[in-house]
Simulated assay, not measured.
Amino acid sequence: MNNVQIVNTAQKKKEILDAYAFRHATKQFDPDRKISDEDFRFILETGRLSPSSVGFEGWKFLVVQNEELRMKIREVSFGGQGQLPTASHFVILLARKDVRYDSKYVEYIYKNIKGLSDEAFKQIPSAYKNFQENDIRILDNERTLIDWASKQTYIPLANMMTAAAQIGIDSCPMEGYNKEKVTAILKDAGILDEEVYDLSVMVTFGYRAAEPKHPQTRRPLDEVVEWVH
């Protein structure tokens, strides 16, 4: 590695860590500042490109810009009182329920997205049956399978928030809502097929209305990390 590469790498590391330091759970956004279409497409793209367990991509992103719908969700979301009326963009991450090894969706992913032939795909269901049934035990009931898919959605969630921070855009992930009531609102609006999707987590994006009152705090690295040699 030459000196230029060393400098560039050090600069990139600093930029990434600066983005993590910049990011905070923004409770109030500036309602007059909107994220450009180009910037928000970039944020969504980092979510789309996120990894998932065995490549199933068991998620869907609902970008809710309808103000009336946002306010209905706000009524049943104690964690979104300041964010939902002021955020530039609001995303609901849904988890797929049909991520079983033998589902039509998994067949679609491997044949239509990954490009496997019929012959090559024949090995996939049996391999992932053992993985899901015995290795990680997520076929015990419907809830364990959905919870597994829901965990996957937190990967694009984190990637989108970090990518946003790197270009100076704020965010706030939200779990503070009544799941049953938000699900009913989305179903009534005709944008949630409950046979296929389950509500996982929500996130708002925009520009902070004010700087945080307190600096970011985290436990020290040596308390978080244990090395095993």
Rank of each mutant, 00 (worst) to 15 (best):
Y154E: 00
E119V: 02
D98A: 05
I92D: 09
Y154V: 00
E133F: 00
I138G: 08
Y105T: 11
E133P: 00
L139D: 08
Y105Q: 13
I113K: 13
A120S: 12
F121W: 07
K114R: 15
E107I: 02
P85W: 01
F121I: 08
S150R: 06
L139M: 14
N130W: 00
A95F: 02
Q83F: 00
N134W: 00
E142L: 02
S126L: 13
Y108N: 14
W148K: 06
L145C: 06
P156I: 00
E119R: 00
G115R: 09
R143E: 15
V91G: 14
F131N: 08
L84R: 01
Q152G: 02
K122S: 14
A120M: 07
K114W: 07
L84S: 05
Y108V: 03
Q132W: 02
A95P: 11
R100P: 04
N134A: 03
R143C: 03
A95I: 05
E107C: 06
S103H: 05
I109K: 14
Q152L: 03
E142C: 02
G82V: 05
G82A: 10
E133S: 04
R100N: 14
Q81E: 12
N141W: 02
Y108L: 09
K151F: 01
K97S: 09
I155G: 06
S150I: 04
I155M: 07
N141S: 11
Q123A: 15
E107D: 12
L145R: 03
A149S: 15
Q152W: 01
N141P: 11
Q152I: 02
A120K: 11
Y110C: 15
D140P: 02
S126P: 04
I92F: 07
Q81N: 10
G80A: 09
N130D: 12
Y105M: 12
E107R: 13
N141T: 03
F121C: 12
G80Q: 05
A87C: 15
V106K: 13
G82R: 05
V91N: 11
S126K: 14
D140T: 11
I138R: 07
Y105R: 14
V91E: 11
Y108R: 10
G115Y: 06
K129S: 11
T153P: 03
W148I: 04
F131D: 12
D135M: 08
R137C: 08
L84K: 03
S103V: 01
R100K: 10
A120Y: 01
K114F: 13
R100D: 14
L84G: 07
S126A: 15
A95E: 09
S103Q: 07
A95V: 05
L93Q: 08
V106H: 10
E142F: 01
S88T: 07
A149N: 07
G80E: 03
D140Y: 03
W148C: 10
Q132V: 00
I124H: 12
Y108E: 13
L116W: 06
A87H: 05
D135N: 05
D98Y: 00
R137I: 01
R96L: 07
G80T: 03
A127H: 14
